[in-house]
Design a protein around this nucleic acid. Structure first.
Lengths: 135, 135
DNA sequence: CCGTATCCACAATGATACTG
DNA sequence: CAGTATCATTGTGGATACGG
């Protein structure tokens, strides 16, 4: 009995913690921003409205599936709008909302830190790896 | 021949883009920050040096494996230091470096935006889902 | 042109058990 | 106390083919 208690308590702790994380605003935001394509699409849209294929060209490496998925989550979260013009063939424009615009300074804070300090990180990394090898 | 060319060009584009992303400082930073546990460990260490088990208690939901892995990457990237005191049993302290400290304002920018705007996002999300259901 | 649907490969995470 | 090693599971993204 006693042996199972520890495992059981860990399990409960994890469940509670998962709930806590799921409700944590910072984590929710980080989950969005850290998506492989969100940042790039945000950057593409920061220059004004864009058509689907324009974004696809700007974010050259993205697959159709992931671009659509990314744009859908942005729309769902109120960060971008999707406007369909029912011509033939159809035309779809995406544009940042005010909420989406307000995210740009945050992205820039990240970019600024990265450009200022990532070389330090890279240096630390190679030193660390070096020491590992030499013993 | 012509049919394979399109797929081939996409493949090349993806390879080049992957290389571009791998070299992009912002993406490298986002990859770190977005790690499930990095933000939480950073927050734990923001109050000063901590022992391994103290961090484990603060970040209640983390497994031993992930905590160790997270701390190792922070150390490797020069964001935290690891100090071993060879008593019996051994004592290990972790502490943020200046570089690690400089990351805290960035985390706070993220946290501030999240606390100010995530309810808007949640609202937009539920409206979007509602419209989906009602047709 | 702008997607959706399906399948598949691989990386990330956690549970568990063991060590100095 | 502070890890390491292994296995099982899940999630994420890409390729491909098809639809409005």
């Amino acid at each position: 009995m006693a042996t199972t208690t520890a495992a059981r308590r860990r399990e409960i702790a994890r469940t509670e913690y998962d709930a806590f994380l799921a409700a944590c605003p910072s984590r929710q935001l980080l989950d969005r921003l850290s998506d492989k394509w969100v940042g790039l699409v945000l950057a593409a849209l920061s220059n004004g409205p864009q058509r689907y294929n324009e974004i696809a060209r700007t974010v050259a490496g993205v697959s159709q599936k992931m671009l659509t998925q990314t744009l859908r989550t942005l729309e769902r979260d109120g960060l971008a709008t999707r406007t369909v013009t029912p011509t033939v063939p159809v035309r779809v424009d995406y544009e940042l909302t005010d909420l989406g615009q307000s995210l740009l300074p945050v992205m820039r804070a990240i970019k600024d830190w990265a450009e200022a300090h990532m070389d330090d990180v890279l240096l630390a990394r190679s030193r660390y790896d070096m020491e590992k090898m030499t013993g």
